[in-house]
Amino acid sequence: MRHDLPNPGWGPLSALPGNPLMWVLILSEMLVFTAFFALYAGQRALDPALFNESQHQLDPVLGGLNTLVLLTSGLFVAFAVEAISAKRIQRSRQWLGAAILLGLLFCLIKVFEYTSKFAAGITPETNVFLVFTMV
């Protein structure tokens, strides 16, 4: 067993930094999203007119805003990891707390977005494009 690896004893995962189980989760998520986008691409190729038409039912400003929120919450979690590695436990908790608050903001934006969509009669059942984007 090589002890210079970050996680000795974890087989192929031993060469990954941080908790190996987190990488299992990340890899699983990526595989699921790859399959999801393969399905999306196939459906889009079959009916591009529907997908182009339906795009204007999305709110790109709110979608972009939520991306900015996620990028910032990710930064805060990375700061929390930096802090805990320097034994600054209280500071790490503060960064994680800030990331959780941004997670709540993400949910609030989603609720606002979906509420306005539902009020306008737009639901995931409207068409296949909205199944992909809303579910």
Binding site: M30, F33, T34, F37, A38, Y40, A41, G42, Q43, R44, A45, L46, D47, P48, F51, N52
Partner: peptide, 14 residues
């Protein structure tokens, strides 16, 4: 791979 699939779907439709 994911980006290629998305691009392929976009180009095939276009």
């Amino acid at each position: 791979l994911t980006l290629t699939l998305i691009a392929a779907g976009y180009l095939a439709g276009r």
